[in-house]
Amino acid sequence: MIKILRSSIIDFTGLIIIGLTLLLFSFSTSFNGALTFPPSVLDLNTIFLSILIEALPFILIGVLIAGMIQIFVTEEHIQKWIPKNKVMAVIMSCVVGALFPACECGIVPIVRRLISKGVPIYAAIGFMLTGPLINPIVIASTYMAFGNNIKMAGLRMGLGFLIAILVALTISFVVKGNQLKTSISIKSTHSHLHIQEKSFMSLFWSMLIHSIDEFFDMAKFLIIGAFLAAFVQTYIPAKTLLETGSGPVSSLLVMMGLAYVLSLCSEADAFIGASFSSIFPTPSILGFLIFGPMIDLKNTLMMLSVFRYKFVMGLLALVISTVFITIMLLQSFL
């Protein structure tokens, strides 16, 4: 308990230092020239803060749900809920994800807790891919962003669901084990013996402790990922990427790369995607809308903190290839 408290204090102190630094950057223009920064640094800070402010509420929701899973959901519950058949387990996980409002940031701690409780890796990945992409809030925002166009919202939902199932099914046949890092897997082990004997307040307090621990564990990787995404957006002009996207293949790759780098929240990315509609064809816009919520830069770093390196890189390659091939094969129908 003392070690956990000490670790949390260290993490919290680090977050305070980062926050004070950001505050200094934000108000540097008010020092009347005593302390000045290049405009690019201020732009970097603005983008960085916007990504953090956008993502933090979903991280908080995610860690609270993860804490509830850790305390109130037992391995026996998981065994009853998850079908034994791999295909049925994948389909069920994707359906649950589609109904679950979550951001790609907040869903990582939830997935980690589910896997530590015994959810198969392929079912957890199906849930992780569909949760940020096909939930009701995302579909509604897509519908509004494209001028109440039900076609774009439907294509995003249908293709995203298909791609998530294909990726999860592939993982079910080629990946063994839960792929969690050893230290995290050990830390996630929690005995549910005598849980019925504990009072609700005791369980609630335990849930908060786990949620706080989860938050500090995830927040540092979110900060690093947000900074890298802001750095790329500041110092690699989008114009450079857009100029290379002239053909159907290159334009799709450019929009997928842009989605990965921008690391936008899935509840808001449709409005950015809609702004490219006059420049890129529909298949490329769909690549942006589908690939970004599944995996982006900050999400990759958060997954690297949870899963083994080879698995994350393999998952990234699998999602990229599946999104690209699926859209290219169906582009004549889009």
Rank of each mutant, 00 (worst) to 15 (best):
M294H: 03
G225D: 05
G287R: 02
K176L: 05
L297S: 07
W81E: 08
L180A: 11
H192R: 05
R156K: 15
I53K: 14
F204D: 00
D217C: 04
Y260I: 15
A219R: 06
I91Y: 06
S185M: 07
I295S: 03
A153H: 09
L52D: 09
V312M: 00
P281H: 03
E243N: 09
L286P: 09
A34Q: 15
S266R: 00
I17K: 05
L52G: 05
T21S: 12
F333I: 14
S211C: 09
A317N: 09
T182I: 03
S172K: 05
L301A: 10
I223N: 03
S275W: 00
G257I: 10
H192E: 02
S8D: 14
F324R: 14
I295H: 02
F291V: 12
H77L: 15
F216G: 05
F37M: 10
I150M: 12
G97W: 06
S7I: 09
I212Y: 12
V167I: 12
I61K: 06
M207P: 03
Q79C: 01
S28D: 04
V175C: 04
H210L: 02
V174E: 08
I18V: 13
Y260M: 02
G67L: 00
V90A: 10
G292I: 10
G14N: 05
Y122R: 03
G158W: 13
L56K: 08
Y309E: 06
V175G: 05
I59M: 11
S191I: 02
G126I: 10
K220L: 08
L228S: 10
L129F: 12
L241Y: 11
T13H: 10
A270L: 11
S8Y: 00
P109Q: 08
I53V: 11
I125W: 03
D213G: 15
F12D: 10
M218V: 06
G33Q: 07
S7Q: 06
Y235P: 09
V174S: 12
L289P: 04
A219K: 07
M92L: 12
S191G: 08
L49R: 13
A124D: 07
L49I: 15
G287Q: 07
I69W: 00
V312N: 13
I16T: 15
A259Q: 14
A219W: 14
L52T: 05
L99H: 05
F288Y: 13
L241H: 08
T142F: 02
S250G: 07
T170G: 05
K239T: 15
T74H: 07
G177Y: 00
A268L: 10
A226M: 01
I209D: 11
L301N: 03
G97K: 09
I4F: 02
I285T: 05
V111G: 04
E76F: 10
P136A: 02
I47N: 04
L315W: 03
H194Y: 15
I65F: 06
V95D: 10
Q196N: 15
K176P: 13
T29C: 12
K298D: 01
T234D: 05
I78K: 01
G118Y: 05
T326G: 10
L222Q: 04
A124G: 02
V312W: 06
D296R: 06
F173I: 04
A238T: 14
L264M: 11
I295V: 13
